[in-house]
Design a protein around this nucleic acid. Structure first.
Lengths: 208, 208
DNA sequence: TTTTATCTCAGACCTAAGACTGAGGCTTTT
DNA sequence: AAAAGCCTCAGTCTTAGGTCTGAGATAAAA
């Protein structure tokens, strides 16, 4: 039996889903909630295998609830079941630890299927959402150096000019120890092994 | 008195030049020769102040003679007096140690003037030749890395990829000690302080 | 034949680099 | 008020990098 909790502040939807799911042999609805906050309580108490979570609820949104649940029950599969699929909803949800992402336009069978899949460890993502994800993912594909801080970028430019840590410190008016810290952070962020590779990176990526 | 030796395998030219030069008060023709080889003998024996040397002679060309003379008599001023001014003639001659370079189309006075100037330490170069020299010089402006050996260039490319000495050694099948030697030589030839600057050099000079 | 240049390598030596840990001050966000 | 991110810096420790000296082997040039 797959233990399921349903969290949705629309009574009609919640009841409807539950009614359907109860007809399934291997599903057991062990709890329901009408807000994120209540949802957390129920989930932590019941420790279900799968959670059907609505986003956009009145008291405490689903994303926060998802985050909270994931930190406490990392093995719990949370399926986002929502009406919208804009980027502002999808990515925070996935980042929060959502396992699957389906829309309320889905058929009852699709929802059931998503639960079964989730239980087996397979993620289900609504095609429309998946599409948005991919494109948004690609454009989001941050070049490594874009995750560098201002200061780190300054230091990287210095490295790209061939300056030593000492010289960088003098140019930026900071201690060599600080420079070393920045350099270390740069190297790990760019995923390179030493300053020479960092310099090469800078030149290959047109920072000069 | 400026002691002069004239080397030219064209009897007419040689005699003509000598005839004119002898009318000059402060010039003394102490020898003449019709080939590079003979020219060397005469010059080494007479130790003149100035040598008028033709290029393109039958027995032993003027360039070899110039080289030979310069090694034995470094203070001797050798003036190349020739009909041609193509690059293949000019540069080897200058490299060989020629002091001035004038054409046979020059007037007698110009030749005399070149000798006087040479004696005083001033180089005279035919304008046409000078022009060619400058352009050819600029294009010839050897980029530092062109003075690197094959092997050193290979190592530099590795540095430009961000490889460590160890990795370079493995790629080129040589010991790390050898790599270090090459790296040191590269650094001094490129006049940079460390491998990072060498890598930057490689990228800035379009080696990639 | 002798010189010259290149490539190879060794040993000793010193320093810059980089990793890791920890920490205080600052600003922005929650 | 608390958390998070950034910048700053210290101390310790290990290693790669680089210099210098010296040297053998080979091949091309004088």
């Amino acid at each position: 039996m797959i233990r399921v909790v349903v969290v949705d502040d629309h009574d009609v939807v919640r009841k409807g889903v539950i009614t359907y799911l109860e007809t399934e042999d291997n599903l057991e609805i062990v709890g329901e909630a009408s807000s994120g906050k209540k949802g957390i309580e129920v989930v932590l108490k019941e420790k279900p295998d799968v959670v059907l979570m609505d986003l956009m609820m009145e008291n405490g949104n689903g994303i926060e609830a998802t985050k909270e649940i994931m930190t406490k029950l990392p093995n719990c599969k949370i399926i986002i079941l929502t009406s919208y699929y804009d980027d502002q909803q999808v990515f925070p949800a996935l980042k929060a630890g959502a396992f699957s992402y389906i829309l309320k336009t889905s058929s009852a069978d699709e929802i059931s299927d998503a639960i079964q899949k989730a239980y087996q460890g397979d993620t289900v993502i609504e095609p429309k959402v998946a599409n948005k994800m991919m494109t948004s993912f690609r454009s989001q594909q941050i070049k490594p150096h874009e995750q560098l801080t201002e200061r780190e970028l300054e230091v990287l430019m210095c490295i790209g000019e061939g300056l030593t840590n000492q010289e960088i410190g003098e140019r930026l008016f900071i201690g060599i120890k600080t420079v070393k810290t920045h350099v270390s952070n740069i190297l790990s962020k760019l995923d390179v092994k030493d300053r020479t590779q960092a310099a090469v990176y800078a030149h290959r990526n047109g920072l000069f």
